[in-house]
Simulated assay, not measured.
Amino acid sequence: MTSRVFIDGAAGTTGLEIRDRLTGRPEFELVVLGDDERKDPSARRAALNEADFAILCLPDKAAREAVALIENDRVRVIDASSAHRVTEGWTYGFPEIVGRDAIAKARFVSNPGCYPTGFIGLVAPLVRAGLLPRDWPFTVHAVSGYSGGGKALIDRFGAEGDIAWRAYGFDLAHKHLPEMQEHAGLAHPVIFSPSVIPAFRGMAVEVPLHLGAMNGGPDALRLEDALAEFYAGSKIVTVSRDHDRSELLIREGAEPTDAMQLHVFGNEAGYHARLVATLDNLGKGASGAAVQSLNLMAGLDETEGLRLPA
């Protein structure tokens, strides 16, 4: 059976990447509006209500408005904005964390943010296992390709060709903070230090840990084992066991990928560890995650149409 999919905001970076992953797949029929219809409320309302699945690739306010345009209880929604990530009645679209069945049965799914995907992917399983305390003062450092900032930041990096590094979030009130805290199961907000580099895609999210300051704190190998067990069998999230690795790279011309790899680095004394997630901010951090959820909601294998290592 073919499902009709309407991508509201299909002309944006995330929407284009989702469309690319769905094009040519017989399971889905894309509902496409012309250039003159995309901002026409009546045309959007009709498309939203005729679809089986609506994927919202919009700013937060516009995403809320799009949901309000849906006039039936049949259309199922994936929201790629941050509007509903901690909203009651919405299922968080991270199948590995919330469970694949929860996504498959949900009507409203909120796509995770790219930075939270790395942080939650690292921390949530370890907090659940009791290996990291939920009331620990977590810090997360992250660097992303500039495509994560949308059209405005893409244009800025193109116009200002000399930007080598852009740090932001110095008001300590980044919109990802509630999402990170809630879905990692933490007692306190994290200190989040995001930055952007002159690469189109790719990101690294790091959580440094002072294990020696934790009561009965585990060593790095135990953390790595727990993550490997949690993600065992996943074709999308994997745990590196390369203990000789001395560096991680984000390449300027990186190919798209919907995979995420987790790394645990520890010192010989066992007091310190660095947890690092490497992923594509447009893949598992955005469009790939949306397609993964769509697959599950449509009763398909979650990896269909995804770009994954052979």
Rank of each mutant, 00 (worst) to 15 (best):
M1T: 14
T2S: 09
I7S: 00
D8V: 00
G12S: 10
T13A: 12
L16T: 11
E17I: 13
D20W: 02
D20Q: 03
F28D: 07
F28K: 05
L30C: 10
V32D: 08
D36Q: 08
D40S: 01
S42I: 12
R45M: 13
A46K: 12
I55L: 14
L56Q: 04
D60T: 09
R64K: 06
A68Y: 03
V75S: 02
V75D: 01
I78F: 01
S81D: 00
A83Y: 00
R85F: 04
V86R: 01
G89Q: 02
W90M: 02
Y92L: 00
F94T: 05
P95F: 02
P95K: 05
I97C: 08
V98G: 02
G99I: 05
A104S: 04
F108Y: 08
F108T: 07
Y115N: 13
G118E: 15
F119N: 05
F119M: 09
I120C: 11
A129V: 11
L131R: 12
L131F: 14
P137E: 05
P137F: 01
H141G: 14
A142R: 11
V143F: 03
Y146T: 06
S147L: 09
G150K: 08
I154D: 06
A159L: 11
G161C: 04
D162R: 11
A164D: 03
R166A: 15
Y168E: 07
G169M: 04
H174K: 07
H176D: 15
Q181C: 11
A184T: 04
G185W: 03
A187M: 09
H188Q: 12
F192D: 14
P194S: 03
V196Y: 03
P198F: 14
P198Y: 05
A199C: 08
R201H: 08
R201F: 09
M203L: 13
M203V: 11
A204I: 15
A204C: 11
P208F: 09
L209I: 04
L209R: 02
H210P: 14
L211M: 01
G212N: 06
N215W: 06
A220P: 07
A220T: 07
A220Y: 06
L221N: 14
R222W: 05
R222D: 01
D225M: 10
L227V: 02
A228D: 15
A228M: 10
S234K: 00
D242Y: 05
H243M: 10
D244I: 11
S246T: 15
S246P: 09
L249K: 12
E252G: 13
E255F: 10
V264M: 01
G266M: 01
G270V: 02
V276R: 08
T278Q: 15
T278H: 13
T278M: 12
D280V: 02
D280F: 06
A286N: 15
A286C: 13
A290P: 13
N295K: 05
A298V: 04
L300N: 03
D301R: 07
E302C: 06
T303F: 04
T303G: 08
E304M: 12
P309L: 02
